[in-house]
Design a protein around this nucleic acid. Structure first.
Length: 214
DNA sequence: GAGACGATTTTCT
DNA sequence: GAAAATCGTCTCG
């Protein structure tokens, strides 16, 4: 059994401009990136295998679509920062702010392949029955990494909560390993449910849900 | 200040 | 596959 499934030497700190691009572009390109959180309890991290884009271009599913509120304020800040929100009484969702400052766009991280800190993740998510169950959903990965209100607005280029991206060649290999990228509709929305703004690695076991299709 | 609802997870059938 | 759990946020009065 190998220690890690990924090669950390192939990862770099992204530039701010990586996140300032179109939400759909970032939502797709962020697959294969690494999300990591250092806390007093230790480090937990994993590879992003599923994400959804939330745009301001005719996308009623976007939290910022109807304007700024106290909750979504971070979405109007500069790109590369964390937008974290609470929903369904139990769950925190982790997003990355994207596009130009003041636009209001974000990318929701929906699933990770757990890589570092599996023991810590199991403590934080005692209900997970398998390792894949640790991070195969947006609420699950936030719980496994210890992401909550305190991480609202953190700079993901410089904080204890960070994202790093693979080199182009290594990313290409990751994508090929998992059968390519699927683009489809987003999960759980009542508005904007028809827009194909969700991306995931086709054959990756940590993808939260596979849409039935004909 | 009240009422409705949600970018989900878990459990039960 | 269906439904409950659960509470902060938003909207309206």
């Amino acid at each position: 059994m190998k220690e890690h499934n990924i090669d950390f030497s192939r990862y770099r700190v992204p530039t701010r401009s990586f996140f300032s691009r179109d939400a759909l572009r970032v939502g797709k390109d962020i697959l294969g990136a690494y999300l990591c959180h250092d806390t007093p309890d230790g480090r937990a991290g994993g590879m992003i295998v599923e994400a959804e884009a939330y745009s301001m271009d005719n996308d009623p599913g976007c939290h910022a679509f109807r304007g700024m509120t106290k909750r979504n304020m971070a979405m109007f800040g500069p790109p590369g920062f964390a937008y974290v929100y609470f929903t369904y009484g139990n769950h925190w969702m982790f997003n990355v702010v994207v596009e130009k400052e003041s636009r209001g766009c974000a990318v929701l991280i929906r699933a990770l392949e757990p890589v570092e800190g599996l023991e810590l993740m199991r403590v934080r998510r005692p209900k997970a029955k398998t390792d894949i169950d640790l991070c195969n959903g947006p609420g699950k990965l936030a719980q496994a990494l210890g992401i909550g209100r305190d991480q609202y607005g953190l700079d993901l280029l410089k904080s204890d909560l960070r994202i790093s991206i693979p080199t182009a060649a290594y990313r290409k290999r990751i994508i090929e390993n998992y059968g390519g990228i699927i683009q489809t509709t987003r999960i759980g929305l009542s508005a904007g449910a028809d827009l194909p703004y969700r991306f995931y690695l086709k054959d990756h076991p940590a993808v939260s849900r596979i849409i039935e299709s004909g």
